[in-house]
Design a protein around this nucleic acid. Structure first.
Length: 639
RNA sequence: GCUCACGUAGCUCAGGGGUCAGAGCGUAUCCUUGGUAAGGAUAAGGUCACCGGUUCAAAUCCGGUCGUGAGCUCCA
């Protein structure tokens, strides 16, 4: 008999007969780990637990708790889903069914569209498949066999996938009972191991992600090794929804969305406080970083948009109107306006870099189905800036912007992801320009040791860009900051400067935003803080609570002092309610501080301080409180 | 834009071919003057998103429009 040497992680080297299934190796050497394993690893590659070993190798076992393990678990659950669907709807055609960040999905073409009520029925069938505890086995076919299989089953989508595979490639399948699916795996050894699952939603999804293709129905789900974990996960999702900015926006009276203006948000007084603080902070920081501010018109003649390229590349997103029989467009971007400002002067190379910022309101016609609270709207204010510079200044300027963005995000306590987006299909300019611009951005990121993902073909039509993404309450990411290099606009607008040689030269432009869109950034802030803003942003920083109406005048004096003399955002709650009621209300409004004034405080001149989330802090001198609050505001401390 | 779901009082939601449309919270008035997350009473509030159809009768069933949600596509 032949033997293979198996090195098991942390457990030395052992010999087994050739062809031994991995799971047996595990059971002999580390039974505890193996019992929890959902897959194995052979020389770093994740494989099925029952994979036989024919060569000496290093193995490990992967539990559900590891990302790779969860992926296997969810992937198998998606196969159980597909099997259930095929049993209940034999005419359904299979799309694809991968694991994703928080679960899995499977795409189907149903003969008659199903509705979300049908998910329950499918869950019941899935339960049966789990009860049957079907063995899951891997098999391999060549391309011809695979094609024949799907052709005979009428699985047109699967057939399409196989057709695109290499001739002679061996194609792997997984079978469980009567159900067989094209799949690279790996999978759990049997369906009985799927202990707890839930189908969470039903949605449409284009076949292979292209709107030119038919729309399939996508069923989303999630699963766990125990009902307890599933329940916990679902509870976490519920908790996360409480941080939804649309909900908090209503509860805290920050903003509203009205039927009369889909995608055009209304900001209420509380929301405007946050907004203005964000703008004030932004202006201060940009002044310090050497920016100047401009403002350009919302409506501009169509000739400008033809010149800028927006007419050709961005028209379907623009709004139009006419003035005195001339065509005008509502600006979808601020850059052309900024170009006109640049053109109104002559510049020397000595003037560069020139940093011109604009909190500019843009309107874009986004598809109705994409609108989402403040995150995705049809009118928003970009904290834009256009930097005009010599070609040799690009790297330094880019680095400076990245540092600025990092400083901003850190103050709010955001962590972020970076993407480098390259040339899209619809774009202008030569390939050399694009290559040069892209490699400059890449160099800066690498110099600064920033890890980033490449987003192929997602650049702006005039240049490549570095994007900064933030996460919302459900871990969905949204693009906020962006740095875009542009060699096109200077050409289009014939921008020049006078060089050392006295001749005219072409400057380079960087477009950039830090917040991105004020609306989106605010939405993310609301979710990030769950509505409990740090004092510098909070619409109300403190509320003064008189215990009875005998303290109203004392409370009024404290409010007066804090509000008028110290400049804090403070109100008194003079309603005829008990203290507990007022405290509860202030707590729900997420006001950072509550100052209680009763008989005792009236006598001592102190206030009983209560901090949101921390509870009663006892009596303090008013001066102590003003000092504390002032410091927290100035240093933008997150409490 | 596409797929599925939803739209009832300021908010959160119940109800559902036939009394007069329901609750809690909030609001107003009155009572209560209370020490750290809801004191009590009374009252006001709705063309059941909009338009059409079916029916003796529609908030309820059907169709369309608008809006919203999840997702796809697209994007800050």
């Amino acid at each position: 008999m032949e033997y293979v040497k198996v090195a098991v992680e942390e457990n030395g080297e052992h010999e087994f007969p050739s062809g031994v299934p991995l799971v047996e190796v595990g059971e002999k050497i580390s039974p505890k780990v193996t019992r929890k394993a959902v897959a194995a690893q052979v020389d770093g590659e994740v494989v099925d637990l029952n994979t036989p070993l024919y060569q000496s190798c290093r193995v490990g076992f992967v539990p559900f708790e590891e990302e790779d393990g969860a992926k296997v678990y969810w992937h198998t659950t998606s196969h159980v889903l597909a099997q259930a669907v095929k049993r209940l709807y034999p005419g359904a055609r299979l799309g694809i069914g991968p694991p994703i960040k928080n679960g899995f999905y499977y795409d189907f073409h149903f003969p008659e569209p199903i509705s979300s009520d049908d998910l329950e029925l499918i869950e019941k069938e899935m339960e049966k498949i789990v009860q049957e505890d079907l063995n899951i086995e891997k098999l391999v076919m060549d391309k011809e066999e695979a094609l024949e299989h799907f052709r005979s089953q009428g699985e047109a989508y699967k057939q399409e996938l196989v057709e695109e595979m290499q001739e002679g490639e061996s194609i792997s399948f997984y079978r469980q009972g009567e159900f067989m699916d094209l799949c690279t795996g790996p999978h759990l050894p049997s369906t009985g191991l799927v202990k707890a699952f839930k189908l969470t939603s039903l949605a449409g999804a284009y076949w292979r992600g292209s709107e030119k293709n038919p729309m399939l129905q996508r069923i989303y789900g999630v699963s766990f090794p125990s009902p307890k974990e599933l329940k916990k996960h679902l509870q976490l999702m519920e908790e996360a929804k409480k941080r939804d900015h649309r909900r908090l926006g209503k509860e805290l009276d920050l903003f509203s969305l009205q039927e009369e203006g889909p995608g055009f948000p209304f900001f209420h007084p509380n929301g405007m406080v946050v907004w203005n603080e964000l703008e004030d902070f932004w202006r201060r920081e940009h002044r310090n970083a050497g920016y100047q501010e401009i403002k350009t018109p919302l409506l501009l003649n169509s000739s400008l948009w033809r010149r800028s390229g927006h007419w050709d590349h961005y028209r379907e997103n623009m709004y139009f109107t006419s003035i005195d029989e001339q065509d005008y467009a509502v600006k979808p971007m601020n850059c052309p306006g900024a170009m006109l400002v640049y053109l109104s002067n002559m510049y020397s190379y000595r003037d560069f870099p020139i940093r011109i910022a604009e909190l500019g309101q843009v309107h874009r016609h986004e598809l109705s189905g994409t609108l989402h609270g403040l995150m995705r709207v049809r009118s928003f204010i970009q904290d834009d800036a256009h930097i005009f510079m010599l070609p040799g200044q690009v790297e330094e300027e880019t680095a400076g912007i990245i540092e600025l963005i990092d400083r901003f995000y850190r103050i709010f306590g955001f962590s972020y992801e970076v993407e480098l987006s390259t040339r899209p299909e619809k774009s202008m300019g030569s390939q050399e320009m694009w290559d040069r611009a892209t490699s400059i951005l890449k160099n800066v990121l690498e110099d600064k040791n920033i890890s980033y993902r490449i987003n192929e073909g997602d650049g702006a039509f005039y240049g490549p860009k570095i994007d900064f993404h933030l996460q919302d309450c459900l871990d969905r990411t949204w693009q906020c900051g962006t740095v875009q290099l542009d060699f096109q606009m200077p050409e289009k607008f014939d921008l020049t400067y006078v060089g050392q040689d006295g001749a005219k030269h072409r400057p380079v432009i960087i477009h950039r935003v830090v917040y991105g869109a004020m609306e989106r950034f605010m939405a993310l802030l609301i979710e990030h803080f769950a509505g409990a803003f740090p004092p510098w942003l909070a619409p109300l920083q403190a509320v003064v609570l008189p215990l009875t109406d005998r303290q109203h005048s004392a409370a009024g004096e404290v409010v007066e002092r804090l509000k008028v003399q110290e400049g804090f955002r403070v109100e008194g709650d003079y309603r005829n309610e008990k203290l507990g009621y007022k405290i509860r209300e202030a707590q729900l409004k997420k006001i950072p501080y509550m100052l209680v004034i009763g008989e005792k405080e009236e006598e001592t001149g102190q206030v009983a301080l209560r901090q949101r989330g921390k509870g009663d802090l006892g009596p303090v001198e008013l001066d102590y409180f003003t000092g504390k609050l002032r410091r927290e505001i100035e240093e933008k401390i997150i409490i």
